[in-house]
Structure formats: C-alpha cells, structure tokens
Design a protein around this nucleic acid. Structure first.
Lengths: 134, 134
DNA sequence: ATTTGTGCAAAACGTTTGCAAGGCG
DNA sequence: CGCCTTGCAAACGTTTTGCACAAAT
C-alpha cells in the first residue's frame, strides 16, 4: 500500500470532514489543490469502505454518500426531503431489534441502515409559509 | 389519466407479484406478451410510486427495487449479501423509535427504511462449506 | 379534436475499468 | 527495479428525456 499525494490529500479531507459527502464533493474540493482524477477518488473511497474507515450510505438520491466512521459510534439518519440536511441519532432499541430479528431468523448480520425521511423543523416552517402564500 | 394496454399489463403484473422487483424484471416479463418499452415501464413505475401504490427501495445494488404496498402493512427488510434474497419482518418497536425521534427533533416523518444486511441461514451453510474447502 | 401516453434513440448520471505512463518502496 | 497507483477516456448499467407518432377520452 503506497502513500501517494492523492491518498494523502483525500485522507486529510476525510479525516477533517464530519458530515456526509459524495465522491463528487471530494473531487471538487481537492481538484484545484492537488492533481487528482475522479477515478482515483472512486478507487480510494472504495478502499476506505473495504477497510471500514468510512461507511457508504444510500439516501435514495441516486448517488452514494460517505461518512467517516473509524472509532465512532454507529448511528442512524434523519434525511430532510426538502433541504437535504442529514441529522444523526442514536438508539439502543434499534440494536436490540436487530439482535432479536437476527436470532429469530438465524440471520448473520453484517450491517444495517435505518433512515428516516421527512422534513426538518426549519423546512416545516418554510412549507407552512408556502402553504399560506397560495 | 388514460387506461392503456401497457398500463393494464403493468398493473396486473404488479398486483400479482408479492416479491420485490426491478424495472428490468417488469420489462422482461411483459415485453413478449405486450408491446411495451423500457421508457414506459420507468414512467409508469414512477407514477405508481408517487401515488403510493408501490414503494421504491434501494438495497445498495445499483438499481431500484419496487414492491406493491397498497393496503399492506409496512415492514422492514433483511437482505442477504450472498444470494440477494429479501426477507421481510415487522417490528412495533421500530415504529415507536421513529415516533420518539420525530417528537424529539421536531421532524415530520414521511417514511423510513430499515434494512439489515447479512447472510441468510442457507448462505451461512454454504459459506461454512467454502471455508472447509480451503 | 384534444389531450395524454408511447416508442425510439439519445442523453444523462454516477461509477467502473483497460491501458499506458508515472512514481513509491 | 518492480510493482502499485494514477489519469485518461471509454464503457457500463440504470434511469430520464425530447420528439414525433399513436391512441384514449
């Protein structure tokens, strides 16, 4: 495993980003500072996913989102359908549900995703305003 | 909203299919019996999703899966990473977790998806065999 | 007659890949 | 030096779209 400038730049970026990002986000934010191609971004992200350094999510928006997870607690997501904001939340109950269903069905769990889609508090206000305007 | 042979065929197919299917699955199963194009399949599936007759899922396999939901209870999914089988399960606890987090965060929930990825009981056996072969 | 839906082909989109060239160990 | 990584461009698979034609109301 070689340590290239591309990998260095990508790693720095990812370690310093707390939020969720797409391959394109990473490419955009690096391309002016380092010589890097989309192909390298995709390849490196896949490597990081395989090594459980980042996690891949599908929020139903036609592209993958990634999130740094190394050493962090697992959590679930609230996705706003209007502004796209992603909030996180934890729930011990969810873990229990997963364990229980795994036992019941004799299913060996690798991972799970729990995504709640709807409208964040700010966007609810905006939607209400829109409603009045009509 | 017009009632065409294409829509009739597609509706019949969907009403009689209990499992999860992709746009391609539908197209394949209809194309020899009715004159229909991929474009129409996609357009019609999107219409049905908008009208809450079917539900769209992303199981992280690079394409969308659909499922008939009209009048059916909502449920969650176990997805086998080896054979692709999709099992369903219900959980009242999940509903409670969703309600609770929605209240806490003042989030207006439209829908949620809870997917558990791993290996079904049959595939666990196969994996065990593979292991011994090595 | 007036919509609305359809088929076709092309385009869009995110992602992967083959290959030759470059750079790390 | 050898092998791994890179960039480029092409290929990929799925889904969307523009447009002219067809069909339902």
């Amino acid at each position: 495993m070689k340590f290239t400038k591309q990998r260095e730049a990508l790693a720095k970026k990812i370690f310093s980003t707390r939020s969720h990002f797409s391959a394109q986000d990473i490419y955009e934010s690096l391309k002016d500072r380092v010589q890097i191609s989309r192909a390298t971004v995709y390849r490196t992200l896949n490597l990081l996913v395989e090594n459980h350094i980042i996690e891949e999510h599908d929020f139903g928006r036609g592209k993958k989102f990634y999130e740094f997870i190394l050493g962090l607690e697992s959590h679930n997501h609230l996705i706003c359908l209007r502004c796209g904001k992603i909030e996180e939340f934890k729930s011990d109950l969810i873990e229990k549900v997963v364990d229980e269903i795994a036992r019941e069905r004799n299913f060996k769990v690798s991972r799970y995703s729990f995504n709640v889609y709807g409208y964040c508090s700010e966007c609810q206000k905006e939607l209400f305003k829109d409603e009045k305007r009509k």
